[in-house]
């Protein structure tokens, strides 16, 4: 892994376009029939959202991915704590990223603060990921 981890280092960010086809495939893959993700009249007129809501756990997946892409085969994610705070809507572009907050070179254990934010810099989902580098 280059460069080697150090506290305060940011990992490469990743953008995701919350496209309608992907939302459909994601919810179908989960077997999630919640109308707010695919039924525009329901989402806007009944629930009062400005559009189709991006599935919360998909944003959670993007928190994992940004760290996992950086780790590649050098280690594995051992845990995450996160919450969905602000909704994202189909058509938005969001950005995932993170910063290393702890690293133990002896054990290979790593901690990162991670986020997914929208283009107004609102954090949709803050989290903390722990990982272990293979020794």
């Amino acid at each position: 892994m280059k460069p080697l981890p150090s506290i305060g280092m940011t990992i490469p960010e990743r953008q995701h376009d919350c496209d309608g086809v992907q939302q459909m495939l994601y919810n179908a893959s989960l077997w999630n029939g919640h109308r707010i993700h695919f039924d525009m009249p329901y989402a806007t007129e009944v629930e009062g959202y400005p559009g189709l809501v991006v599935a919360g756990p998909l944003i959670g997946d993007w928190l994992h991915q940004v760290v996992d892409e950086w780790l590649k085969d050098a280690g594995m994610i051992t845990g995450i704590e996160y919450s969905n705070r602000v909704a994202a809507f189909v058509g938005e572009t969001v950005t995932a990223g993170g910063t290393i907050t702890a690293y133990d070179a002896e054990t290979g254990s790593l901690t990162l603060d991670v986020f997914v934010k929208n283009d107004r810099d609102e954090v949709l989902a803050p989290g903390v990921i722990t990982a272990r580098l293979d020794r």
Binding site: L25, S29, Q65, D68
Partner: peptide, 22 residues
């Protein structure tokens, strides 16, 4: 299917050799 639907870019997941976290 899960890897494609989450827009994963790593081959080991897209090939289904191992499951991504979550």
């Amino acid at each position: 299917k899960y890897a494609v639907a989450t827009n994963n870019r790593q081959k080991k997941y897209l090939d289904g050799d191992v499951a991504p976290p979550l």
